[in-house]
Design a protein around this nucleic acid. Structure first.
Length: 208
DNA sequence: CACCAGGTTGACC
DNA sequence: GGTCAACATGGT
């Protein structure tokens, strides 16, 4: 492994600067965004969240009552299953014992919610509850493989452990995931591998 | 026109 | 254990 995780983090941070994720006003809004952005561009999620705010449906109570939920989130796609998932996560947010749970317990409980998989659970843990976990996504896997940081097939927990072993700080974990996403959105569109986009070789990214 | 977007689920093998 | 279609809209 010629490139350390911490080194990669520093390169990205020096180049792109602080990202200050997640863009949301409240922890619950983080969770809503996490559901809505499942396999969906953030641009479309913004429209859906705008609609929810316009109709004052951005709290757990209002989501559960909302009669036109499907209509409001339509721009984000998969609107039928996402409406159901939003209600599931809303019910969870009404629980009183969340803050008392250990990170492991909280993760387990989130994963029990129908419609919440590992990436969504970890996004909520990290950006809504400020728990020190790393969010792995397809961007992360693609970038790590290109850089030779990760070899083999996609292994969510394996990649998560790799990062969490080297980065412990919640703020750094937030920034690292955000930087990987922003970097990937701008540069690494090509699939499956883009030889130009290896850090240090890509003419559009002046990493030294 | 095809393919992608800050995934998850359930059926099937 | 792994693989795969279904889910739905909007942008390139």
């Amino acid at each position: 492994m010629w490139l350390r995780i911490t080194h990669l983090y520093r390169l990205l941070k020096d180049h792109y600067g602080e990202q200050h994720w997640w863009p949301a006003d409240t922890p619950f809004e983080v969770a809503v965004g996490a559901i809505l952005t499942q396999n969906t561009s953030w641009k479309n999620v913004e429209k859906a969240i705008y609609n929810l705010k316009k109709h004052n449906c951005i709290t757990p109570e209002r989501i559960l009552q909302c009669k036109e939920l499907e209509e409001l989130i339509k721009p984000a796609g998969f609107y039928r299953q996402k409406a159901e998932r939003l209600k599931n996560i809303a019910s969870f947010f009404l629980r009183k014992d969340i803050d008392k749970m250990s990170t492991e317990k909280l993760r387990e409980e989130l994963l029990n919610i129908k419609g919440v998989g590992k990436e969504t659970a970890d996004s909520i843990l990290l950006y809504a509850f400020d728990r020190p976990v790393f969010v792995v996504d397809k961007y992360t896997y693609r970038l790590f493989v290109r850089l030779g940081v990760w070899k083999g097939r996609f292994d969510y927990e394996g990649i998560r452990n790799l990062v969490e072993r080297e980065i412990k700080d919640v703020g750094d974990l937030k920034e690292f995931h955000a930087l990987i996403v922003e970097h990937s959105k701008r540069i690494c569109k090509k699939k499956p591998l883009c030889n130009e986009c290896f850090i240090g070789q890509c003419p559009r990214i002046p990493f030294s």
